[in-house]
Design a protein around this nucleic acid. Structure first.
Lengths: 149, 149
DNA sequence: CTTGACCTTCCCATGGTTGGAAGCCGCAGA
DNA sequence: TCTGCGGCTTCCAACCATGGGAAGGTCAAG
């Protein structure tokens, strides 16, 4: 099966399949005489696995681990569970941060007249917030989720 | 004031100040005879404004708008409110997506024994999920928030 | 004058994904 | 057989925000 067909069947774009191969997430695909990549149903199965893991927000490094465990018949489910739980925790941290932003903004927006007048608590808050901590260490969450595709 | 001092005072790293200048978010800073960038208290004030907007998760394009409104004495608070409310909506969409991921994963993890045995509902779900929609259009949220710093 | 802290510009890397260009391959229709 | 089209190949670049680092200039204190 050509890469295009594999892409359509797995839901992973051809671009990304090549990228996954190049970055070592999946082994190099076999090639036809003409140099075209050739995929088996098993390969497509694996690509689908990867896509679903990404849909759940797993980072590449986590997917590498999950793939390894998936292939390993003697794996221990505790290892998988650990990865999943760590990821859930990371997601929840991220959610909390976003929720805090949303709450703050929603409150400010609520207080804003939203009319033709220039006075605006939102801008005031950006100008001189109550709880400002300049140059301090704030939560540097980092890389938890895209939801793309 | 040198860029280092401006960075410390505003809470925006010197790297990012140069980046903001280069990308047009802020006007080019004045220069001393030696070519050093020179910042006024007003500039620092603006940098702080930017940092706070970023802390609330606003995208660069939104910050450009907010800065424009901030500088415009004849602005209408409705414009600011609109931007803020759009952003809140975007944040909440993002939050919903992440929450969905977290819920799914938490449930799977809950069902996983987490012991030495290989059987694992998490891997099973990644292999053959119930609701799979391969090659369809899924939410491409995109660019709603970093929470960095 | 030396030292050390600071500044300058420039390049590189991250992560996930998309876009494009140039060129080869394979199939179908005239 | 020739032509055209779409698929495939590789390579290069971009997005966004940020940090790292090198090579070299500047400044103030000792």
């Amino acid at each position: 099966m050509n890469i295009g067909q594999a892409a359509r069947t797995s839901g992973v774009s051809a671009k990304m399949i090549r990228y996954y191969e190049q970055s070592g997430l999946i082994p190099p695909a076999g090639r036809t005489g003409a140099g075209y990549r050739d995929y088996s149903d098993k390969d497509v199965h694996e690509l689908r696995f990867i896509r679903r893991a990404r849909d759940l927000g797993f980072a590449t490094t986590e997917i590498v681990e999950l793939l390894g465990l998936w292939r390993d018949r003697s794996r221990q489910s505790a290892d998988v569970k650990r990865i999943a739980e760590n990821h859930v925790a990371a997601l929840q941290t991220k959610i909390r941060e976003l929720q805090e932003m949303a709450d703050t903004l929603a409150e400010l927006a609520h207080c804003c007249h939203g009319d033709h007048r220039p006075d605006c608590p939102i801008l005031e808050r950006l100008e001189t917030p109550e709880n400002d901590t300049p140059a301090t260490i704030r939560p540097r969450s980092g890389a938890v989720a895209r939801s793309r595709r």
